[in-house]
Every structure is written in C-alpha cells, then in structure tokens.
Amino acid sequence: MTEMTLDNVEHFVGKNLGTSDWIEVDQSRIDQFAECTGDRQWIHVDVERAKRESPFQATIAHGYLSLSLVTALAMDLGFAPKDASVIVNYGLDRVRFITPVKAGQRVRLKLAMAGIEPRDNRQFVIKSTATLEIENNQAPALAAEILVLVVP
C-alpha cells in the first residue's frame, strides 16, 4: 500500500488501512498496567481466584489496556501521514468493549479511515474505525472510532 502523506491523505478516506500483526496480552502486561494505573481488581491480577470465581475462568485484561493497544498497532499500520510534524490523540467518538481479553490471548487491529475534518492552521482530524480482534474468537475485544489531530 502507498504510504500516507500530507499530499495524499484524502485518498485514504473510506479505505481499509490494514490489519496488524498479532500481539499477546500476557499476565505480565496486565500486571504492569494494573501497577501503572492503580487498578488492581482481582479479576485482572489474581490468577488463582479468577480461575475459581470469574465467569471467564481466567484473569482478563483491563478494557483500557485493550484500548491503549490500539494506538501502537495503528501506528504500525501507518494510520497518519508520515510527513506530519505532530500527530496527537484527539479523542474517541465511540468505544464499545465487546469481549474481554483473557490473559495469554492474542489480539490484532483492523483499521479503516472514516473521514477527515479540517481545522485551523492547515491542521486536520482523522477519524478511523478500529476493531481489536481476538485470535480464534468471533466477537472482537472492542470497536472504537478514534480521532487523531494532524499538524503539518
């Protein structure tokens, strides 16, 4: 696929930007996220209790951990112009956490560009639809509309 630049970004509207490689969401990553955020709820960090008491029979990743993976995976797919000065998260229009990601499962991102909204000073916002899929699972982990501000 052609690399996205400031000159050709409009050609990507309505197109699939690709599918990332699979990455594992292991217990170590979940534990690190729990430490970083202070969210140490047992369903995320207590492996033995989760096996006994959780309806998922395993610990699960925080929803916001799954969401945080979207940005890095989207960058790998080249979801913004490579020649922009600055690309920053602008927000989310919609996020749905559909299926919990169990510790040890692998996820990947499918991304499509939904639109571009011009701003002042030649800046613009890219809106993309993101689906974080779970390997061997029909339902995705999440679906989101992500927004990034692009500064030329």
Rank of each mutant, 00 (worst) to 15 (best):
A72P: 04
V101I: 15
F124Q: 05
G63N: 04
V125Y: 05
V45Q: 12
E10L: 07
V88N: 12
L73E: 10
V9M: 04
T5E: 00
V150T: 09
G14P: 01
M75A: 14
Q32K: 13
D93M: 02
L6I: 08
T71V: 10
R52T: 12
D7S: 14
E133G: 02
L17Y: 12
Q57V: 08
E48S: 09
V88R: 15
A144V: 00
I60E: 03
A130Q: 13
Q138V: 12
R119Y: 06
G104T: 06
N89R: 07
N137Y: 09
Q32S: 11
A34N: 11
W22K: 00
A139N: 08
V86C: 00
D7R: 05
L77S: 14
R49P: 06
R40L: 13
M4A: 02
H11I: 06
R96C: 04
V125H: 04
N137M: 13
V45Y: 11
D39W: 09
A58Y: 06
V150N: 09
R119N: 11
R52H: 09
E53T: 07
A130N: 13
A72S: 15
L67V: 01
D120W: 13
S128M: 04
S85I: 12
D93S: 12
E53K: 08
A130P: 10
P55E: 09
M113T: 11
F33G: 04
V107G: 03
E48Y: 03
N137H: 14
A139F: 12
V70Q: 00
I126D: 09
F56M: 12
F33M: 06
K127H: 13
G78S: 01
F12I: 05
I134H: 05
I23S: 02
L132K: 01
D7E: 14
V45S: 12
W22D: 01
H44S: 11
L77E: 13
K127N: 06
P140M: 04
F124W: 14
G115P: 08
D76N: 15
G18E: 00
V9R: 10
E135W: 10
N8F: 10
A143G: 08
A112H: 06
D120K: 15
A61G: 02
L73W: 11
E24N: 02
V101S: 01
I126Y: 14
F79P: 01
A61Q: 01
G18V: 02
L67W: 04
E117D: 13
R29G: 09
T59W: 07
M4C: 06
N8P: 02
W42T: 13
P55I: 11
L92H: 02
M75I: 14
P81N: 02
A114D: 15
H62D: 03
T99E: 13
F79Q: 02
F56W: 14
V107C: 02
R96N: 11
G38K: 12
D46T: 12
G38S: 08
L92I: 01
F124P: 07
A141R: 00
I134A: 06
D7N: 14
D83R: 05
V25P: 08
K15E: 15
T131Y: 05
L65M: 08
G104Q: 00
E133V: 05
F124N: 05
E145W: 01
H44W: 03
V151Y: 15
I134T: 12
V95K: 10
Y64Q: 12
I60M: 07
F56K: 03
R119Q: 15
V151I: 14
F79N: 04
A80F: 05
L109D: 04
